[in-house]
Structures are given as structure tokens and as C-alpha cells.
């Protein structure tokens, strides 16, 4: 992909982000932060490339550490979001 197509994706994604995030209900702002935390760890893609490549031993180890850090975030972030979301319950109908 050339720079302009990447830039286009970026700019459009910013707009999508803007509208999607405004529609998030304020009650879920804490889970929003937790889940954005988890998904921003998609940076693990870069870490995997560094860790997988032969050649520079230094780059490989930096990559492996980054894979571990991002994994803490991915598993921890999604799990804690799940835990929080499971707590949100609607009122039970008493007039049944």
C-alpha cells in the first residue's frame, strides 16, 4: 500500500471512531477504556514481526518482550472488560 491509501484509511477511521465513540453510553465509559486498551495492543503485530525475524538478536528479544507486554494487555484487557460488562444488569420486573 502506498502512503496515500494508508493515510486515507487513517483519516476515515478517525471519523468512524468519532461517531462510534459518541454513541457509547456514558455508563460504559470505564469498559470503553478497558476495551480500547485491549485493542490498541494490536501493536502485537509489530512485536510478532520483530520476534519472528532472524538476523538481529537484539531486535528479536525486544520483539519478544513486546509480545509478552502486549499479551498481558490483550488477555487482561478483554477479560476485565468481560468481567465488568457481566455486572451490568437490568431491573428485574417485579410485576410478573
Amino acid at each position: 500500500m502506498d502512503f496515500i491509501s494508508i493515510l486515507s484509511i487513517f483519516v476515515l477511521a478517525c471519523f468512524v471512531g468519532y461517531y462510534v465513540v459518541w454513541s457509547v453510553t456514558p455508563a460504559l465509559h470505564t469498559p470503553l477504556m478497558a476495551v480500547t486498551n485491549a485493542i490498541s495492543s494490536v501493536i502485537i503485530v509489530g512485536a510478532l514481526i520483530a520476534a519472528a525475524a532472524g538476523g538481529s538478536l537484539g531486535a528479536k528479544w525486544l520483539g519478544l518482550i513486546a509480545v509478552a507486554l502486549a499479551s498481558v494487555n490483550i488477555f487482561g484487557g478483554f477479560a476485565v472488560t468481560h468481567r465488568m460488562l457481566a455486572m451490568y444488569k437490568k431491573k428485574e420486573r417485579r410485576d410478573a
Partner: peptide, 11 residues
């Protein structure tokens, strides 16, 4: 990564 970064950044 770009889409996610933009989403999280605007969020």
C-alpha cells in the same frame, strides 16, 4: 493497526 489506533485515539 491504523484503524485501531485511530479508534482508540479518538476515543
Amino acid at each position: 493497526m491504523i484503524i485501531t489506533g485511530a479508534l482508540v485515539g479518538s476515543s
